[in-house]
Amino acid sequence: MDLSAFKETLAQPAPPEGLSLALQALWWDAKGDWDKAHECAQERDDRDGARVHAYLHRKEGDPSNAGYWYRRAGTKAFAGSLAEEWEELARSFLITP
């Protein structure tokens, strides 16, 4: 699935089967359900989960907590817009096997 196809699934009431937890988190975030997105991010205790977790706390307006999760992910804080970060994350998770 590419980014365009992933975005098209946002018209559905639930994420498509087979998405990773990180992609499910981004899917729920795009649907406006921050809590559900956060639950998915918390379930994935790895780099991808930490990256989504950082993005979500940045979106929430909690830079300190976001910074913690960026450090856990081993990456610098994202400097662009939230929309740009969401797309970068989605693209990277869609190409990851």
Results as ranks from 00 to 15, higher is better:
64 S>N: 12
33 D>T: 02
91 R>P: 12
27 W>G: 00
68 Y>T: 04
40 C>K: 08
46 D>N: 14
10 L>H: 07
21 L>Q: 06
26 L>G: 02
39 E>M: 08
60 E>Y: 13
88 E>F: 11
21 L>E: 09
86 W>V: 08
23 L>W: 03
6 F>C: 08
77 A>I: 07
80 G>P: 08
23 L>Y: 01
1 M>L: 15
93 F>W: 09
71 R>E: 11
27 W>A: 00
17 E>N: 00
81 S>E: 05
70 Y>P: 12
37 A>V: 01
54 A>Y: 01
60 E>W: 05
57 H>G: 10
63 P>W: 13
43 E>N: 07
6 F>T: 01
10 L>P: 09
9 T>A: 03
72 R>Y: 11
15 P>W: 00
37 A>Q: 02
97 P>R: 15
80 G>K: 05
63 P>I: 10
97 P>Q: 15
93 F>P: 04
51 R>T: 06
58 R>V: 04
70 Y>F: 11
17 E>Q: 03
84 E>I: 10
22 A>C: 00
23 L>N: 00
44 R>H: 14
92 S>N: 10
11 A>Q: 09
54 A>P: 02
73 A>L: 06
95 I>N: 14
46 D>I: 03
71 R>D: 13
55 Y>V: 07
62 D>I: 11
50 A>C: 14
19 L>N: 05
3 L>E: 13
79 A>P: 02
70 Y>L: 01
26 L>K: 01
51 R>P: 07
25 A>P: 03
24 Q>S: 05
91 R>V: 08
14 A>Y: 03
95 I>V: 15
79 A>T: 05
61 G>C: 11
65 N>M: 13
54 A>F: 05
67 G>D: 07
70 Y>S: 13
39 E>G: 01
